[in-house]
Design a protein around this nucleic acid. Sequence first.
DNA 1: GGTACAATAT
DNA 2: AATATTGTAC
Length: 383
Amino acid sequence: MYFFTEKMHSLKMGFPDYIQTLEEERRKIQVFSKELPLSLELVTQAIEACKQQLSGTASEYNLNGHSECSEQTTSTEGPVLEEFIPIKKMASSSPFCDEEDEDDEQHSHKQRVSKENNNSDKRKSDWLRSVQLWNPDPPAEEDVNKKVPGLELKRSGNGGGAFQPFHKEERGAKTSESLSKAPSSTSVAAASSSAAEPAAEKSLNEGQRKQRRCWSQDLHKRFLHALQQLGGADTATPKQIREIMNVDGLTNDEVKSHLQKYRLHTRRPSPMVHNSSNPQAAPFVLVGNIFVQSPEYAAVATSTASREVATVAAPAGIYAPVATHPTPVSHPPADSIKNPQFKKVKLFEHSISDERANHSEGAVHSNSPTSSSSTHTSTSLGY
DNA sequence: GGTACAATAT
DNA sequence: AATATTGTAC
């Protein structure tokens, strides 16, 4: 009760008005009764409480014992209120934690331990993330070229996609390695730190594995850029890529590895298989008792195998069960939706979309959702 | 240069 | 525990 009256006062209204307000609130929430069951209930309770207060009927009793609000069938009883009060407090206390949710990134590299944000931030972003339907990722990005070898700026709001693989790396990378700036191409002094590290490590331990390379966004962009210059991931060769990227300290192997991953994710095995329903489309046909790759498919597969088109199948598509509707994959806008149900569906970041979009690389759009290869067991996720 | 697989990081 | 990403060996 205390809570209510307090609130009420702050709003400068009497019970009647407040109740009205609450009811209005409840109407709004009602729509989301599924999503915000507790909120609904809270408001309901509040209304009830106010009414009782107003009518002068036994106050405390109701509150504690808890009245029988008709609506609330589910019962989270009295305690609920108390429990949530603190929350309100919190919320108000950190009203604007403006912020970069992208804090989710924690790096393996302990480099930036310093910045410990308040939990509230984290929490907030968490639940927000789970609820928000809009596409989190903001623009950002151009700063790629801004970078100066010597200093690294941390863009607080970088492309924030919570889910992008490279973002995480980016952090570490940023601090640990600076990449070059403009494509202009002066060689970039790469990571001082990274350079330094190896030496130390080597001296210390022979067998030590070399430090992981962090593929920052910038680095990756360079990679993509090189790729496009070389005519795509399939034609490009690690060495060439490295040369074009012109990043100091970057090794062929690293590029190779990255390329491998890129290819892997790039050629997306579209999981959409309408097997039974659509035999024609199926990559394999059953002959006798063995499966044979259907001619058509084979052709496609071999020729374009790897460059799947970009538009990544929507998450739904990716995990859709085999038997699903023949319907094609969902559309682009889908990417903005995060369906919690599907595990992180990562896209090869902007990269892919960018890249593909801009460059003809993946020109071959032909693939129908049905066709696809399957050869890939592992991550089917689009990169 | 490409792959597979081990080692690590999340 | 499962995955994703990166390093190595072949």
